[in-house]
């Protein structure tokens, strides 16, 4: 085969490969939506994060506004500390609260932000004061059973 034809084919091949990677990065992956340059990080502590993982979405009113960047354990307070990267396009009041929710019954866990009423906005490095940890199914069931047996014993006693 002629050198020129060969070069042309290989050129097409390489360009197609680059296009495929760009497609994967921008259309399939999250390169297009989040860029580390345009985020700010805030911190929140939870008594229990359940099954929350790094990179889990942070939503407000159902819209993804950021991602969990890091999860740690504070051995003084015995609490989980979660670093959240929020998109700079979205500003929240200082007294915003964070709670860990589950999408669907068995779906992945995410952090929901509920805006407060203060005028001052959250900035890089802020700490969220009001948090609500994950609801752990086992605890819920345990509580339910406990309540039930307690109720039963109360009604049974007078007899």
């Amino acid at each position: 085969m002629q050198r020129a034809t060969l070069d042309l084919w290989v050129g097409i091949f390489v360009v197609a490969g680059i296009a495929a990677v760009l497609f994967l990065a921008l259309r399939v992956g999250n390169m297009g939506s989040f860029d580390s340059a345009s985020t700010y990080t805030v911190k929140a502590s939870f008594d229990n994060i359940g099954g929350l993982k790094a990179r889990a979405p942070i939503k407000s009113a159902g819209v993804v506004v950021g991602r969990v960047s890091e999860i740690g354990f504070d051995s003084n307070m015995y609490e989980a500390t979660v670093m959240m990267k929020l998109d700079t396009r979205y500003k929240f009041p200082k007294d915003t609260s964070a709670s860990i929710m589950t999408s669907g019954l068995l779906g992945e866990q995410y952090i929901a932000l509920e805006a407060g009423g203060e005028d001052k906005k959250l900035v890089e490095g802020d700490h969220l004061k009001i948090t609500q940890g994950a609801v752990v199914l086992e605890n819920l069931i345990g509580q339910f059973l406990y309540n039930k047996s307690e109720g039963e014993s109360k009604t049974a006693e007078p007899r």
């Binding site: 990065a25 259309r27 399939v28 999250n30 939506s33 993804v64």
Partner: peptide, 14 residues
Amino acid sequence: WSQMQAAVDFREDI
């Protein structure tokens, strides 16, 4: 597409 983009990370996955 949006769920895909939310779940696929460029570094981790691609």
